[in-house]
Design a protein around this nucleic acid. Sequence first.
DNA 1: GCCAACGTTGGC
DNA 2: GCCAACGTTGGC
Length: 157
Amino acid sequence: MNYWLFKSEPSSFGIQDLQRQPQQTTYWDGVRNYQARNFIRDAIAVGDEVFFYHSNSQPKGIVGIMRVISAASPDPTAYDPQDPHYDPQSNPEKPRWFGLELQWVETFTQVLELQQLKQYEILQTMPLLRKGNRLSILPVTPEHWHFILKLKGLHSS
DNA sequence: GCCAACGTTGGC
DNA sequence: GCCAACGTTGGC
C-alpha cells in the first residue's frame, strides 16, 4: 500500500465536486504527462491512499483524502475530439493515457496550506515542495503521510 | 498578470 | 541526437 498526492484546480474539479458525485467516486482522467501516466499505470494500486491537493487557488494546499478503488484503465477522454484533453495521436489499439477510479474518504476541516507545509523541516524533501515540480501526481512517503496526518489532527477542532 | 521551471515538438 | 521555440503549470 502506497501513498500519493493528486493535484487539481478546484475551479475545474475540487474535493467538494468529488463529494457530490454518486457514490462519492470519480474517474481521474485527463492526465497528459508521461511521468504521471507511469505512476497511474504502473505504480498506483487499489487500496492506495491519496492526498487531494488544490492548486492554483486560494487557499492552496492539501484538502482531504481519497482512496484508489480501481486499477488503471485507458483514458477515454484521449479519444474524444470534444474533450479538452483530446489527443489525436493516441490510439485505442495501443493506449497511451490512463486513468483510475477514486473514492472520497475525508475532507479536512481546515486546508493544510502550502505555505504551512513549507515550514516543516521534515517535509522539505517532499517532491511537492521542490521548486519547479509541476507533476500533477506525486508519490508521498509513509513518513510524510503520517506527519501530515498528525498536522491535520493539530489543526482540526 | 507575470514568469520560472519545466515538458514537448520539430527542424536540422 | 541536439536544441531552440513553444506550450503549460502553478506559485506569487
